[in-house]
Amino acid sequence: MSASSTPARRAQPLHAAGLAHHFEDLAQQHEAARLGMWAFLITEVMFFGGLFTGYAVYRNLYPAAFRLASHHLDVALGTTNTAVLIGSSLTMALAIREAQIGRWKPQIGYLIATMLLGATFLGIKSIEYHHKWVDHLMPGPGFDVSVFGAEGPHARIFYSFYFVMTGLHAFHMVVGLGLMAWITRRAARGDFTPGHHTALEMTGLYWHFVDLVWIFLFPLLYLIGRHG
């Protein structure tokens, strides 16, 4: 797996490169990693799920306020970011495919493209946050309830959900970019072969999961009652 193989490992030349001694073979090791990653992703589903549940409860209680508040979000920027993130999922999937067929250069290229798209997403997100800051829509003492008339206090609840949910999502993106930097360095070192690229594939699972969360956040936050 890593370069720091133990002396004991080196004394066992029968083991394939990157195989930990407690696994039968690479296939079993890979399956264990995949299941472990999915178990982690389930905890992530439940983590974000709690926020989605809270959102559902409050949107049900204050539908008019949520509609008004949602109309202050920028649909064009939100749509662009959705496209950017889907694009980054494509390049991530393609990077893994290149590793599977053992092509080194396009693999690095796709990984770098994935990072650039991820950074673009965060850049656009920060522009949106800045707009909300300027418009006094950050939850807290500076929140301008008068923007929404009588619905002001309830609109503030929407913005609390907006910032916590997109903020935690953005945090996951930052973590993802860190993982990508690490994985790109390993890819550049030639760590990933068609027979063994588990770390790359697990990072891909995480990246796609973050995309999944956004697929639900986008319509629920940006697109409430837009026809009104």
Binding site: W38, L41, I42, V45, M46, G49, G50, F52, T53, A56, V57, N60
Partner: peptide
């Protein structure tokens, strides 16, 4: 599927 199932249970029963 388990992740999806528990999510549906959490949101469904709460609502």
């Amino acid at each position: 599927a388990a992740g999806f199932l528990w999510l549906v249970l959490m949101i469904g029963l709460t609502m």
